[in-house]
Write a protein that binds this DNA or RNA. Structure first.
Length: 425
RNA sequence: GGAGAGGUGGCAGAGCGGUUGAAUGCGGCGGCCUCGAAAGUCGUUUCCCGACGUGUCGGGACGGGGGUUCGAAUCCCUCCCUCUCCGCCA
């Protein structure tokens, strides 16, 4: 959520920022409604002040056993006026909110103005594309031949786009998760969280999925709960409606969760095998910081995610999203794309975003400054560290042998308990 | 799912129609005391909205929403949540 006071003070800045995010220009309507609201609030407050004063007088009169009927009659009128005004205010606020909740965060000054993915900026790469002296197979053919991935059974159980891992494949998936969690806890100092996988409307609104992305989430209608599309939702909402002490910041959480996405209408491009699925596993990192340090934290978060791929010795590149490709709540975002040699493609395995005070304002997450005891909004950030399906793609394709087996790098062996994946029985 | 109890400030816990933003205690912060600390003691300690000389004034908030009333933390309705017991269940 943006700050209506800031918009009021400097509409031009917001106009420019929203344009950069290809977002509608409802600013004039918004400012008119804001004006209307403030005028009505002032009138209502004046009447309430009158009512409070006279009600006090009535109380005195009654105490002294004197008649107060004329004052009571008068206040009855005032009460009716207040009711009408408050109803008017409620309606104006409803219209105001309807616009406010659809306005995206403004892009940071370092973000390139652009339309789409095409305009994203290359930041850096790590390692290089590995070379092989035998013909490569892509992850789906590899995994099905090895018997570690079974989409056919999953389709029978649930539908298309649900992975089912078997044997060493299941163990490898679990190894990824445990390896990443331990890494972030032990090397990067995050506190581990195991959150609920279903979240209510307030939570999904707080992180910015609602209202725009409602159709992208699975909804349990009976209880009005959403299957989380990312652990960002429950973990960020841990501190919803709280005022933290500055001394508590920064807060660093990491959490594994299953993630559920309907991915409606995304059939066609880039959907082969594990590249786009309805349910996947992800280890997420979430940070809460004071505003002054959020961009430093953003860079640190990016490095925390990168180190996972470095530890697994997988080649990747980092891009900085242009304004038009930024998500609704993000002010700045890096994507990490891992190289999959069999598919000959880069796959996005991590999005690392700074939401500044946008989510904090929606979720009402604040902190009290030590210096002047004033309360203001924290900055929230998160990044995948990382999502497993595309990691699996890159991993299988990078570590394949000419015999169709998969070599497990040493760092992962304590988690898998084996050093090679051969055809499953 | 059924029955009962309850949701008040950072926490505990009063108030149950008329200066109650809210007693009291704990915690926090500041002063005094002390070489220093503890103890003691005095003071202080919520957030949101609006107006303007930015500090003051006005309004609002006692789980959320609605109602009754001149006036609601206090009465009524409704939803949510927590606890206890019963039922069901991994």
């Amino acid at each position: 959520m943006l700050d209506i006071k800031q918009i009021r003070q400097d509409p031009e800045r917001f106009k420019v920022g929203l344009d950069a995010k290809n977002s509608g220009d409802e600013l004039d309507t918004l400012l008119n409604l804001d004006q209307k609201r403030r005028e009505a609030v002032t009138r209502s407050d004046e009447l309430k002040a009158l009512r409070n004063r006279v009600s006090g007088e009535i109380a005195q009169l009654k105490k002294n056993k004197q008649a107060a009927d004329d004052k009571i009659q008068e206040m009855k009128q005032v009460g009716a006026q207040i009711k009408t005004l408050d109803e008017e205010i409620r309606q104006v606020e409803e219209q105001l909110d309807a616009i406010m909740i659809t306005l995206p965060n403004l892009p940071h000054e370092t973000v390139k103005i652009g339309e789409s993915e095409e305009d994203n900026v290359f930041v850096r790469e790590w390692g290089k594309k590995p070379t092989f002296d035998f013909p490569l197979i892509d992850h789906l053919d590899l995994a099905e031949a090895l018997g570690i991935l079974d989409f056919h059974s999953a389709a029978k159980i649930s539908g298309s786009g649900f992975p089912l891992y078997k044997g060493a494949g299941a163990k490898l998936e679990r190894a990824f998760i445990n390896f990443m969690l331990d890494f972030h806890v032990e090397k990067h100092g995050y506190q581990e969280i195991f959150p609920p996988f279903l979240a209510n409307r307030k939570s999904t609104f707080g992180t910015g999925q609602l209202p725009k992305l409602e159709d992208d989430m699975y909804l349990d209608n009976t209880d009005d709960l959403f299957l989380i599309p990312t652990a960002e939702v429950p973990v960020t909402n841990i501190h919803r409606d709280e005022i933290l002490a500055e001394s508590q910041l920064p807060i660093k959480y990491t959490a594994y969760s299953a993630c559920f996405r309907r991915e409606a209408g995304s059939y066609g491009k880039d959907t082969r095998g594990l590249s786009r699925v309805h349910q996947f596993n992800k280890v997420e990192m979430v940070r809460f910081t004071v505003p002054e340090t959020s961009y430093e934290a953003h860079e640190a978060l990016l490095k925390d995610a990168e180190e996972i791929l470095q530890a697994l010795n997988l080649h990747y590149r980092v891009v900085s999203l242009c304004s038009g490709d930024l998500s609704f709540a993000a002010a700045k975002c890096y994507d990490i794309e891992v190289w999959a040699p069999g598919s000959e493609k880069y796959f996005e395995v991590s999005s690392v975003s700074n939401f500044t005070d946008f989510q904090a304002r929606r979720a009402n997450i604040r902190y009290r400054r030590t210096s002047d005891k004033k309360v203001s909004y924290v900055h929230t950030l998160n990044g995948s560290g990382v999502a497993t399906p595309r990691l699996m793609i890159a991993f299988l394709e990078t570590y394949q042998t000419d015999e169709g087996t998969i070599i497990i790098p040493e760092i992962l062996q304590p988690y898998t308990g084996f050093n090679i994946i051969k055809t499953q029985p």
